Amino acid sequence: MKQQGAWTRWKNAVERKVTWAELWKAEPHRIKFLIQAVYDVLPSPSNLHTWGIAETPACPLCSKRGTLEHILSCCTGALGDGRYRWRHDQVLKTIAEAISTGLEWAKQVRPSKKSIAFVRAGDKPTPVRRTSSAGILMSARDWQVLVDLEHQLKFPSHIVVTTLQPDIVLVSESTKQAVLLELTVPWEDRLEEAFERKLSKYARLVSDCHQAGWRARCFPVEVGCRGFAARSLARAFSTLGIEGERKRRAIRSITERGGRMSTSVGRIQR
């Protein structure tokens, strides 16, 4: 019960709803993987040994205990072979596509001009309700999106010289803004831990950007290796200005890609 009920402790994961339309369109093995992965009843070496089907619970790549967490997140053999990096980059591509789409939408939409509220003589002005911010993407027209695929991204040296390589960097030269996004694909039980670790890692870089006269922000985002997005991803999209159906569609696409890639990683290692 402790193993199969671990999903109830995912406080930082976005609730994932699977509609009937998605069920009809989805491949059977994808639905099977999603359900069995949530309850940790996939045929991992550890589970097969517990069920009396396999003689050893050892991982075929590194000989450590092959739990589902180990197979999808912690195997040094899979890490060395680049399997986790491949999955990470596939998810990163989908996030970058969502941001690029949001950027194109922001370029086409101009914020409405402030209206003047006239007040009759002797009347008191009524307080105006403040609407939420349109988002960072609406604050400039010259955003450039840099994506770190296969360790190719170099942080713009005219801002700060650093060896750090954020996964996505958005730069606006006209407004001197820089936005950093750093993706982690952890075990769902460690979403918050991954967020805090990456926030601390890039705190110095953000501070250096501020000292150089740039307004910088860092958004660590997480997509669990079983296909559940963290709330940090939803917050980052909202702050950028990707809201409503566009945000829901983006998160759905990202989680679907993450789960699909983990299915491949798990199948390779069994």
Rank of each mutant, 00 (worst) to 15 (best):
E104H: 05
T175P: 13
E192V: 03
Q269W: 02
C75Y: 07
A250T: 02
A21T: 07
A13I: 00
V147N: 08
P45S: 05
V160G: 04
T263I: 10
R130W: 08
K64I: 00
I116M: 15
K176I: 08
A230K: 03
S115L: 15
L61C: 06
P220I: 02
E243F: 05
R215N: 11
V128T: 11
G66W: 01
R87P: 00
W143V: 04
S73P: 01
W105E: 12
L240I: 04
F155T: 03
A78C: 12
T8C: 13
T67Q: 05
P220H: 05
L103A: 03
M1C: 12
K32G: 00
D40K: 13
L68A: 06
L233N: 01
E97M: 10
A117W: 14
C225H: 02
K154F: 03
L61H: 07
E15K: 10
D208C: 02
V265E: 05
E192K: 10
R65W: 03
R226D: 04
S139P: 03
R30M: 07
P45Q: 07
A106R: 11
G77S: 10
K2V: 15
A13W: 01
D123Q: 14
H158P: 04
R110G: 01
A13R: 02
Q177M: 15
I168Q: 07
L61W: 14
W187R: 08
A140E: 06
S264N: 07
A236L: 05
T162E: 12
L170V: 13
D40F: 00
P111E: 12
I53E: 11
